[in-house]
Design a protein around this nucleic acid. Structure first.
Lengths: 332, 332
DNA sequence: CGGTGAAATGTAACCGGTTACATTAACAGA
DNA sequence: TCTGTTAATGTAACCGGTTACATTTCACCG
């Protein structure tokens, strides 16, 4: 393999001069610089980045922990992360954790062992134990965020967004509204449920626990939950799903039961994934700037890595928008 | 930062003994081993992996180039890659190239510069130029595969799969069948088109170029293309889309035109993404073992990296299955 | 012409592991 | 007791860059 010494020999200069000609060209004489560049070209020299990383204690890699890449929303967030990271000269090490804490800690360890400079966590979980001490590696928590996050965060006001969806349904005259939740132990799910209940309370409605079904953000869990809601003595006239995937599963189930959406029952989702405007009927949902979540997370993380902002209390609340399409309508 | 020297000092042994106690424990005396492990524990020592990578010339990272992570099928493939890589102790460096060749080459360069040990390319493009010479870094090309790939490949028999879909439509009595293609210059698209034409030819039908519309694998391109097909004097009675995303876009467009699927017009897709069984009506499509593509690609790449199999002519053809759901029916 | 300072370049230490080779220790057999 | 052999451990070179510091070169000025 051609290394810097071979190039130095070829150009008739020292290794230091080669290094400088490549990294800080303005400090070497023009003539020397040209000689070096010619030698680099001739030798087909590419600096060994593991050596650079080792020496400089900087890898320019970021670890990204995502609960599941199969989720369309997360895929968009990752797209944003990757784009922003690349623009700033960073690569991303992706880990699809599937919620497994051992896996999360293993990948988080890549930061402790200097394989990456920082970490973006898209789940409400802190992979660093107390034993990591006060020397917490740079981390940003985005999308699904810990209540007392020990790091900067990027999130939505999920409670307000869920209230907006619920108010929309109430305005249409719905009074018996079902909800399909996300996974338990999730602050995000809890907040959306709170927003849902807030709106009901304002409308003077008592919360009905039996109208709230568990789900796990997959279409099939939405399908099952919708079935449960239909089997009630007095099924709801509208269903609010905590994401679009479950809403699509729910709509499938409703149609199989012979119900029309929205004439017989309304359905609302959350996230505004690409399919939301193409399913039948197009889905009323909350649009989130997914890619922007990713970009913002990268910006905060790089700030933290570069020590530009030591405070771990930098929190960004991203905007949402209620997108009313055809899956919600007046109560029958 | 605690390094191996601190640990050695703490344990009262040499750095070599510490290294051995961790990497090849059987060559150090049990008593010494215990002392070292205790010192490691006490110091909270984690080996600096950049140093290990630099020294051993192995990073245990793989670069993955994906045209677009937003595509549900690719997301599943990446999930398979990530899982298999992790099981073998490798991390993945993900690059969402969006088809940009500069970006692809930049990331591919991470292999040449030793930041990664190999590369998985999910697009029909070779990021290594001739100047990289005979020292081609380990690479595997999966899913969308070059005709003369200079490396092992993992792919589907797209031609046979497309023929199977088309034969299914012919069996239902369709004679005027539209097709929505993927991006131009794609061997995968070309093969699916060939399979489509094969089936038509066997049925004695002449190919009708005007029934073949361009698309780009997004729902909106399917939506547009379906509109084009409908505007013909004699629109097709069935549409074969080269992926499920476009099929869902097309179905949306057909419904807006007041057509019922499959009573008035049949639609078939390709890939069997999660939404395929939840859209309305559930989509007839080709199921591909997406995760398995990823796992297989990793297996081939690690073989190549470890020199277990020097031949670049290892090619895997993955199985497909025609999944008939409700979006296709007899011609009206 | 010698002195001065700036610019250009060279020398070598250093980053933190791994490992070839050297050394020491321990023990068996003569 | 001495020698040979093996196991355990230590010493130090090495990987390929970066960079502090030393040295050389050279223009310019008194």
């Amino acid at each position: 393999m051609t290394n810097i010494r071979k190039v130095a020999e070829l150009a008739g200069v020292s290794v230091a001069t080669v290094s400088r000609a490549l990294k800080t060209p303005d400090v070497v004489a023009p003539g020397t610089r040209d000689k070096v560049l010619a030698a680099v070209e001739q030798a087909g020299y590419r600096p060994n980045l593991t050596a650079v990383q080792f020496r400089s204690q900087r890898t320019r890699n970021l670890v990204v922990l995502v609960p599941t890449i199969a989720n369309t929303f997360f895929a968009r967030v990752i797209g944003g992360i990757q784009e922003a990271a690349q623009r700033r000269g960073y690569g991303i090490l992706l880990c699809n954790t599937l919620g497994d804490e051992r896996t999360e800690r293993a990948y988080a360890g890549m930061v402790s062992t200097r394989q990456a400079d920082g970490l973006i966590q898209l789940r409400a979980y802190d992979p660093f134990t107390a034993s990591d001490g006060k020397a917490r590696p740079p981390m940003v928590n985005a999308c699904e965020v810990l209540d007392a996050a020990p790091c900067p965060t990027v999130r939505l006001d999920n409670r307000a967004a869920a209230r907006a969806v619920t108010e929309h349904l109430l305005t249409l005259g719905h009074r018996r509204i079902g909800m399909i939740k996300g996974p338990r132990n999730s602050p995000l799910t809890r907040d959306r449920l709170l927003g849902f209940q807030d709106a009901l309370a304002v409308a003077g409605l008592l919360p009905d626990e039996s109208l709230v079904c568990p789900g796990d953000f997959t279409p099939s869990s939405g399908y099952r939950a919708a079935g449960d809601l239909l089997s009630r003595a007095d099924p709801p006239t509208a269903i609010f799903c905590e994401n679009d995937e479950m809403a699509m599963g729910a709509m499938r189930r409703l149609k199989e039961a012979g119900l029309r959406v929205p004439e017989d029952i309304s359905v609302a989702g959350f996230d505004d994934i690409a399919f939301a405007s193409f399913c039948d009927p197009p889905l009323t949902t909350i649009a989130q700037p997914a890619e922007e979540f990713g970009r913002e997370a990268v910006a905060l993380l790089l700030d933290s890595i570069d020590g530009r902002d030591a405070t771990a209390d930098e929190h960004r609340i991203m905007p949402f928008e209620l997108v009313v399409r055809e899956s919600t309508g007046p109560v029958a």
